[in-house]
Write a protein that binds this DNA or RNA. Sequence first.
DNA 1: AGCACGCCGACT
DNA 2: GTCGGCGTGCTC
Length: 833
Amino acid sequence: MTIARVIVDVPSRDTDRAFDYTIPERLQGWVEIGSRVAVPFGPRKLQGIVIGLAEDADVELAKLKPIEEVLDALPPLSPELVELGEWMSRRWLCPLTVSLQAMLPAALKGRSEKYVFPAAGAQWSDEETARSGGLLLALRKGKPLKLAMLLQQYPEQGAALKRWLRQGRLEERQRVEDKSSGKTVYTVFPADAETLLKAVEEIPARASKQREVVRYLAENNDPIAVARLAAEASTTSATIRSLEERGLLEIRSVTEERDPYADRDFTASNPMVLTPKQATALAPIVDALNERSSEAFLLHGVTGSGKTEVYLQAIQRCLELGREAIVLVPEIALTAQLVERFKSRFGALVAVLHSRLSNGERYDEWRKIREGRAQVAVGARSAIFAPFSSIGLIVIDEEHETSYKQEESPRYHAREVAIERARLHGAAVVLGSATPALETYEAAAHTRGGSQSGLGKIGYIGLPERVANRPLPGVQIVDMREELKLGNRAMFSRSLAAAIKDRLEKQEQIVLLLNRRGYATFVMCRSCGYTAACPHCEISLTYHRGSSNLRCHYCGYSEAEPKTCPSCESPHIRFFGTGTQKVEEALAEAFPGIRVIRMDVDTTTEKGSHERWLTEFRERRADVLLGTQMVAKGLDFPYVTLVGVLAADSALRLPDFRAPERTFQLLTQVAGRAGRHELPGEVIIQTYDPEHESITSVQGHDYQGFVERALLLRKQLGYPPYGRLIGVTFSHESAAMLLSIGGQFASGLRERAMELGIRKEFDSTGASALEVLGPVSSPIARLKDRYRFQCMVKYRGDVDASLLVSRVLGEIGEAAKRGGVQISVDVDPQMML
DNA sequence: AGCACGCCGACT
DNA sequence: GTCGGCGTGCTC
């Protein structure tokens, strides 16, 4: 008897283990590791993933319930992805179902739905009917209705529904449903009649049902739905399945496909001739591919050095070897321009996965991969889970981007998942960036010395020059304090204003970066000092001019623009700080006739708007592309010769040890947008802190220098990559409980560390150390009506802090649950806020 | 996480 | 007496 070990879709600590089920006869052969199944669980019916099959497991069979259904013709996950999920849940301390669920396309994240319908012979009095406000009339039409929908439509009838269900006058039924709208039919594609007839002889006489099916198919040699064929031959799908194993037929899920790129022509492109530098960069990657060794490389190339062509040719080689490739790109860089580059080189072999596709479209692309019709997957973070079976190469472009870390559970980092997945496949990893993350750089620089970062060995490949020897743009730093002294109170310095005017005359283009959206960043009353804050979060509200309201950028709350102070009714209420909307206005004022495209979260929510703006800019229907960091990444426009940064230090003062690194990276990236083609580029950076290293290093394009100094500082303070962090956040609607639960966690962890003889101090001896900071109120003390406290665990890489933390959480979990305190754990947090 | 079961106050 | 409040414990 085979037992299936199933992870049910209940994301909690208590249920984070496999539950055993029997496999009923009709599903024999369909249940595999990675199958998605519907199972009974207590009184409910749930979706689950099979993570193991055990022959006659050591359990009381009588206690086991059978699997109810297998939900896909092909298991959506492979044993390798299940293993990867197990690794993830250990690495980032999340329930296994959460990491497995993260690998499925949204269309397959079916939830179970409850339906209710009247029991046979159930009666209701006229009075009850009248009081139900139409509910009973709807129900008595006979069709089962969704319980969730009824509760939403008749909110007052909840109690009545419950009563009737208990009394048995209503019945409920639960089904696990897919979200995908496209209809899927599992279809049998038979081999040709001749092959089938020949094969009949070889099928053992005992397998009479199989023979019958084959004879049927020999006569009716057309594709037929699995269910119909089973009915036709009065047998079960298990029979058909074994025929598939004999190679006499193929079962495929057939759907109407939506190809989001169907209406577009891609002109074929051939490999370009590599520069000698590019060729040198490519060589070690190709060596690794040929040897099938799971090596990782940092491809450190300045902006415009032609990294993409290196990726393309590495992928080419990978495909020639009959293996598949994954390319990760930051979401906002995943533009038509980039997709086109891959499509034109590899054609229909490319599947594209990004968040702007509908669930259905995404599911189609995902199936192309699963069914082997695509060999290259290009996508954002979650494309790292592309269901390939033989991966040869994983490329992560702009590997330093923060978007590779998922900010909700599972809080994984795609870079690390890539390295682990590559290890399982014997695949090469290429991490490309002009400004590598300090963690990556350190791992590459000290690969021989033994790195603390946890990334393992990384080979270093440098690409220090732009193609065709185009110079890097000149960078000018403007001290805005000097401007103020000279009486210039405008938001554009004299040199930036002059440069803008010059480009307008020459009909060249300009990119302007300001990392704050909205119009004004805070609202204050000059009489009483009142500032407008979100009632749900401890965050000041941002004024948006178009809609004349104040908005919270954390929870989306908005309120009307105040005319007088809500606190003292003084009319002296003023808007402070500059956002992109205000810059747009100032540009129009200072340069009449200027054509500006503003690109930020507010103007790009609509589907396709992002690409539309970029196309408009590329076609030079605008002079200025003004925006938040989304204008800094990966864009390549030949006529951009000026890049202006309005407030370079805006992110520098955040209470986050990575703030200087982020600032340097952002400035370098945006500077790289200028002068990428024939026309030379110029960059003007405005700041109130012109001496700051994050800014001065951009001027000299001095990554090396910046990084060496930053790493030294990190080492002194025990921050990553030399020490590591785990952030634990406790939240509750009231603050009262948080300090005590947080305190219990901190002291519990300190005790455990002491027992194991782990030192508290980080010192030069290099001995294991672990330190617990907090609990303290989080930098954002309240978010969406919940107060937040946090602890930060700082430790050296040789301490298994994850294990310690999960043990302590196990101890205090009960108390936290009773008190209603939510705990979220972030291993290797990327944002300190 | 849900959902049932169980033991307590406020209604017909 | 019953309805429904939410604390507790279990789900193969």
